[in-house]
C-alpha cells in the first residue's frame, strides 16, 4: 500500500470549515425562504389586485342600479302598506252594521194596534253583536197578546237576516188607559223589549257563496 502524505491538511480543513459555516448556510436558507415568500406574496398581491378590480366592477354596476332598486324597494313598501291598509279599511266597511235594513224590519212588524215610543240601539264593543231596546204600547182586547205578537214578529223578521236573534220582554204591564181604535174601546199595555242579535247571518246563510259588497237600504 502506497503512503499518502497530505501536506495541505490544515488548509483543506479550513476550506471545509468555511464551506460548512452555519451563518453562511443560515443566510443562504434565509435568502431562499425570503425569495419563496416574496414570490408567494406577489402571487397573493396579484390575486388581491384582481379581486379589487372585480369589486370595482361590481360596485360600478351596483351604483348604476342602486337608485332604481332603492326606488323599487320604497315603492314596494308603500304598495304593501297601501294593500294592508285598504284590506283593513275594507274589513271595517264590510263589518259595519247597517241600521237602515233593521229599521225597515222593525217598521214591517208594527201592526196598527201597536205603537213604538222609543228605539235605543247600539253596536256592542268589537262588533260582538247588536243590542236594542224597544219601548211602546199595544192596544187590543188582549193587549199583552198584541205585544207578544209584535215580539214574535220581530223574532221572525230579524232571524231572516241576522244570527242568534233574541227578543225578550224586559217589561210588560197593563195600563189603565182605554184607547179608541176604529170606534172600539181597547185596553192598553206598555212593553219594553230587549232585542239582541248577531249582525252576521245564521250559519246556513253564511255557508252560501260570497256575494259582491252589498248596498243595503230600505226597500222603496
Amino acid at each position: 500500500m502506497a503512503l499518502h502524505l497530505n501536506l495541505l491538511h490544515e488548509e483543506i480543513l479550513e476550506h471545509r470549515q468555511r464551506q460548512r459555516d452555519p451563518l453562511k448556510i443560515g443566510i443562504m436558507v434565509l435568502v431562499s425562504f425570503g425569495v419563496l415568500m416574496f414570490l408567494y406574496y406577489m402571487w397573493n398581491a396579484y390575486r388581491t389586485l384582481e379581486i379589487k378590480g372585480r369589486l370595482s366592477v361590481v360596485e360600478r354596476d351596483w351604483a348604476k342600479v342602486e337608485p332604481t332598486v332603492t326606488a323599487a324597494q320604497k315603492r314596494s313598501t308603500e304598495l304593501s302598506n297601501i294593500i294592508k291598509t285598504t284590506r283593513v279599511l275594507d274589513e271595517y266597511v264590510d263589518n259595519r252594521f247597517f241600521w237602515g235594513p233593521f229599521l225597515q224590519k222593525v217598521a214591517l212588524c208594527i201592526a196598527p194596534n201597536t205603537q213604538l215610543t222609543s228605539i235605543d240601539g247600539s253596536v256592542l264593543e268589537d262588533n260582538k253583536g247588536i243590542a236594542v231596546s224597544i219601548e211602546g204600547v199595544a192596544a187590543g182586547r188582549e193587549p199583552r197578546a198584541a205585544a207578544e205578537d209584535l215580539r214574535q214578529m220581530l223574532t221572525e223578521q230579524l232571524a231572516q237576516s241576522y244570527g242568534d236573534v233574541k227578543v225578550e220582554f224586559k217589561a210588560l204591564e197593563d195600563l189603565d188607559t182605554i184607547v179608541n181604535v176604529s170606534g172600539t174601546n181597547l185596553a192598553m199595555a206598555r212593553y219594553t223589549l230587549t232585542v239582541g242579535f248577531n249582525p252576521s247571518p245564521a250559519a246556513k246563510t253564511a255557508a252560501a257563496s260570497p256575494s259582491p259588497r252589498p248596498t243595503r237600504g230600505p226597500k222603496q
Binding site: 237602515g100 229599521l103 225597515q104 230600505p218
Partner: peptide, 10 residues
C-alpha cells in the same frame, strides 16, 4: 229617517 240613514251608510 230610515231611508236617510240607509243612504248615509251607503
Amino acid at each position: 229617517l230610515g231611508k236617510a240613514i240607509a243612504d248615509l251608510e251607503n
